[in-house]
Nucleic acid binder design. Structure first.
Lengths: 214, 214
DNA sequence: GACTGGCACGTACGCTGTACGTCCGTCAAC
DNA sequence: GTTGACGGACGTACAGCGTACGTGCCAGTC
């Protein structure tokens, strides 16, 4: 028996195997051993299916952070949970980023993050701003990590960089080896640490002001 | 006379008018008053055309930062230049983000940024890490700002948030008004400032260590 | 037994990207 | 002035896409 869930799962499998461009209603149906039009009994159209894929991916994020741990550690754990799922479904992650979903699928991550930020001492618009900044960093990082099409990426990039004119682009030229290679784990942790520290500084100022007022 | 540049310009116009999904070789050709296949005399295929669009957009970034200004100000100016062009071509920006380009089109921004980071005291891998973190934030922010499909966005989001269960999602529920509305300028500047300050702290530690060694 | 609703499915239409062949205007060589 | 080559604009054609619509089967209810 066909179902919305089975269709979404098959679609995610197909995307991970053959890429987001290769996904088609016919391909998904073939993967399920089913006629194309049968899909439309469970999904109104392809756009809705892609939205459903986004929600499913988002819902797979597992939060294992300990509520009693310091908020800085919880922030780190939550950020890594986000990243882990993106690495597990790299190509589907691209479709998540390419669609803005109006649904409440991503609400649990937001709730957890806001709760953590409250523990850190941020409230109201300050908490929302912190959240948005943090999400921006994570999304931007993952877009870079995941957008390089992990499978069969032609390493043509090196050749291009080798041709960089050292006179026009001295900095790029001298840092070329560092720019072409990238330890994604290390890069992510670096930015994460910088952000957590920046937030800690800001949190200290906040509580300092509150103490001064109280 | 048809040319690669005219094709790219027409394609960008079309994307901004009707969205990235609506862009087709036939549509572009029609906009130029030309047969479809004529395009293929100047562009090998649609993917290459989209790459060309990305490069063109990237090349439109104007750097007006004063090399004699403090590096913190230069960072701010460069970030805003990036953002400005994304706002000028919002829908094309989405295609830029959805493609990773192997070309050297985005090299000038990188060069300028690395030069600024060197002035701040960052060198080698530290500079590259700072650059990548900064780009991640900017890209993530712009993806949020631009991904909300500025034109004719159905404001269904508010209704969805109004239905949030206050028991399941207390934080989201209490901050709902702040979460639904968003002053993009303010949000961007907030994160930008936080990052610049974090970088300044790190730069101070760097130069401190150098002084200690020297 | 008849009736009804849901689901799987085939057909068909308009759209897409693009391979291939054709035509025509321009320019060089004789 | 004629001829030949060549580059660019173009039409045709094909495979593949999303999906509107109609058909047939099968379970459940009166």
């Amino acid at each position: 028996m066909l179902s919305r869930g089975r269709i979404v799962d098959a679609a995610i499998d197909l995307i991970e195997r053959e890429g987001a461009d290769a996904v088609s209603m016919r391909g998904i149906a073939a993967g399920l051993g089913v006629g194309v039009m049968s899909l439309y009994n469970h999904v109104p159209n392809k756009a809705a299916l892609l939205d459903a894929i986004s929600e499913t991916i988002l819902s797979k994020i597992e939060f294992t952070d300990d509520p009693s741990a310091p908020w800085t550690d919880r922030v780190r754990v939550q950020a890594r949970a986000f990243r882990q799922i993106a690495h597990h479904y790299p190509r589907s992650t691209m479709v998540v980023f390419s669609r803005q979903l109006h649904s409440s699928a991503g609400l649990l991550p937001v709730e957890r993050a806001l709760s953590t930020l409250r523990d850190a001492g941020f409230e109201g618009s300050e908490a929302v701003r912190m959240l948005r900044m943090f999400v921006a960093y994570i999304v931007g990082s993952l877009l870079r990590e995941v957008g390089v099409t992990p499978t069969f990426a032609p390493v043509r990039g090196d050749a291009t960089v080798a041709e960089v004119d050292p006179v026009l682009f001295p900095e790029v030229s001298s840092l070329a080896p560092l720019l072409t290679s990238c330890d994604h784990d290390e890069e992510f942790e670096f930015g994460l640490e910088l952000l957590v520290q920046a937030m800690a500084v800001r949190a200290g100022e906040q509580s300092g002001r509150r103490r001064a007022r109280g």
